[in-house]
């Protein structure tokens, strides 16, 4: 592979178990099939990106992993254990945190309370305090706003809060749904730098992005989703270097 990966990816090695394994996963909204029989693996230490156009089913996939939606068929396996069918709070307990699309921060609570909720299930108070410090160092603007009602922050600030809050869950796997949405270019760079830092701290990341080029630059492996079907997958560097692919799928 190329210099794009500084990770400790185990992908392709024989006998290595993926951290997250989606097998023949199908998800419906009523009669509408949003995700159809997809197979997707995330290995420990990787950044995997899931890209595709609007309505392709990316958020649906993440929401199913988190236990907010039930699959119609197929299953979600995390660390060798089937988690599809579990309630959402047990999925968090298993080690998956999700920064959802549209931020979904608690608007009527303060920034500090939102961060506390990110660590809702954790009992290790000293480690939580250290992680909180880490998040506030990554996003200094949050430190200035700890007492502010989250709903009164700007969209970009709310996005940072959503990402920081998910990090505070101390996840093994972090699901990020369009973390760069609505951010100024300099903040987009900051978010992508941060995602690499998070990965370097040992957290595995599944990243959904509209900004496919930026996502591919930091990712180890990529999947392309089109109308609910996976149409392409491969090492991110290969997808980036293949010009016809970037033209066809990424408009680049």
């Amino acid at each position: 592979m190329t210099e794009a990966t500084s990770s400790t990816s185990q992908r392709g090695k024989q006998g290595v178990q993926p951290l997250l394994d989606l097998t023949n996963l199908s998800v419906n909204y009523g009669n509408i099939a949003a995700v159809q029989s997809i197979n997707l693996q995330v290995h420990p230490g990787e950044i995997v990106t899931l890209i595709g156009s609007n309505g392709a089913g990316k958020s649906t996939t993440l929401r199913t992993i988190s236990g907010l939606l039930r699959p119609r068929a197929g299953e979600v396996v995390f660390e060798g254990r089937k988690i599809s069918g579990m309630p959402g709070h047990d999925v968090v307990k298993a080690g998956i945190c999700h920064s959802p699309e549209g931020r979904r921060i608690f608007q009527r609570m303060t920034v500090g309370e939102n961060l506390d909720l990110g660590a809702f299930l954790r009992k290790d108070a000293t480690q939580v305090a250290a992680d909180r410090e880490n998040v506030l160092t990554l996003f200094p603007v949050l430190r200035e706003r700890l007492q502010q009602k989250a709903g009164t922050m700007s969209g970009g600030e709310q996005q940072m809060l959503a990402v920081g809050r998910a990090m505070l869950g101390n996840p093994k796997l972090l699901l990020l749904d369009e973390p760069s949405m609505g951010l100024a270019p300099v903040l987009v760079d900051l978010i992508f730098d941060t995602i690499e830092k998070i990965r370097d701290q040992g957290v595995t990341v599944l990243l959904v992005e509209q900004n496919a080029l930026a996502a591919l630059r930091i990712a180890d492996y990529a999947y392309v989703l089109e109308s609910g079907h996976l149409t392409l997958e491969g090492p991110a560097a290969e997808l980036l270097s293949d010009e016809s692919l970037t033209k066809a799928y990424l408009g680049g």
Binding site: L68, L117, F120, L121, G169
Partner: peptide, 13 residues
Amino acid sequence: QDQDGARLMGVNV
């Protein structure tokens, strides 16, 4: 405020 949001924080709704 947000049931799904709470679930994602690990709250048993």
